[in-house]
Design a protein around this nucleic acid. Structure first.
Lengths: 226, 226
DNA sequence: GGCGTTATGTACGATTCAGTTAATAATGTG
DNA sequence: CACATTATTAACTGAATCGTACATAACGCC
């Protein structure tokens, strides 16, 4: 025990001076900020280097080149926002409440992660070239569909939801509304005013997204006894 | 009269050799392609120059600098896609048909103008900085709200649509679904497959967007006689 | 038909910026 | 202690690229 603790303390002491993982994380965090603000070609390696507690040399030491760094930042962005859905515990809720919760969670989640949204926007500008080089991104998001599918199924079995619904399509719809809310806030609010993007407006949008999805999936004339 | 005609013909002859407006349009068209593909910092002036039938010198002659050109391209993108809605003649249709037509038009319109979508994405990455310097962009899109408002009103008066609907919010919803379909096609199809983006899938999405909006605005229990 | 204005081409300057070199040193490991 | 790994710094290179200087051609007007 004492020995183990000593080792751990030694490591902490060591990490104060030599901390490869910490340096990597530091670089990634700063690079995420720079890339998400300025895009791949707009980002400046020198700027990233200046804002880290390490040097430009270290960036090349760990990430090879600019594209390598960008790719790792993209992976990091996807990794950070994964999970979450799995902790919603939708199975414990009735289908309607579960769907509402999922919609609201997605909306808020996107809203709270503008850097992620911007990275995805940038990657789409690049036609998704870089994410195709990454192995792990693909797998992460599949879960969203599965949990949605489970909720749909339960709703259908309870006679609450329509038949013939496509979970992937529903995910597309929820994502579209939640994503656009962040991605296009600048141009939309410039043209039409920012009322929808103030706290009250956002709360309204959030609830109406859930409302819209619900109205879309519900049967037209529910049997009261179902 | 004859003098006027002669002058016009002379101008046409002259334009065969010296055609300032043609040169400007040529530059703008090429620049739109370059900027929408590569973004502001990613675009190359030399590349644009090489693809025009004129020279780099002319770009600076007419547009000042790179940002000036970008700004004009952005304006051009918004200008090209304006109108349209006004030619839909929604007033002649019953409210339900009008709303469906508007949804489908918006969806298809976005789909057919990927360069415009990409310019808007890029401008959002830049927090809408450049569009704020442009006078005319703001006015163009207001019409969309007005025609939507008229349809809603007619629907409500006919007892078909719910009260308390916000036209701006509805426009936000229709735009979100139609925009996301183009803007995020690369990342979405990479992660979840491209079924939704094949012709059949797109047709389904298009009709379901209209369906979703309709279900959202319709009264729950319509009076058959209304 | 000369002269100012507008339009155009070429070549070059100046700068920015990704990536490297080279020298050095601290730390941990066997 | 030899030796690999991790870290740091500053100066440098070379290519890419924005923008300009300069020369000049066409046109429009008086």
């Amino acid at each position: 025990m004492k020995q183990g603790a000593a080792t751990k303390e030694e490591k902490q002491v060591r990490q104060a001076k030599r901390d490869p993982e910490g340096v990597r994380r530091d670089i990634l965090a700063v690079a995420m900020e720079e890339f998400s603000q300025n895009g791949l070609s707009g980002a400046r390696i020198d700027e990233i280097a200046a804002r880290t507690r390490t040097s430009k040399r270290m960036i090349y030491y760990y990430f090879g080149d600019k594209e390598g760094l960008y790719q790792r930042v993209l992976e990091e962005a996807y990794a950070e926002v994964r999970g979450g859905e799995s902790e919603l515990e939708l199975d414990g809720l009735d289908p309607v409440a579960a769907l509402v919760k999922l919609c609201r969670y997605t909306f808020d989640h996107h809203r709270r992660n503008p850097s992620f949204i911007r990275m995805v926007m940038i990657e789409n500008i690049h036609h998704g070239r870089h994410m195709q080089l990454s192995e792990n991104i693909r797998g992460l998001n599949r879960l969203a569909i599965e949990s949605l599918e489970a909720v749909l199924k339960r709703g259908q079995e309870a006679g609450l939801f329509r038949e013939g619904l496509n979970p992937l399509e529903l995910h597309w719809q929820i994502s579209a509304l939640s994503f656009f809310n962040v991605s296009n806030a600048a141009t939309f609010s410039f043209i039409f005013g920012d009322a929808l993007f103030m706290p009250d407006g956002q709360e309204t949008l959030s609830s109406h997204v859930a409302d819209m999805v619900l109205r879309y999936v519900r049967v037209e004339h529910p049997r009261p006894g179902a």
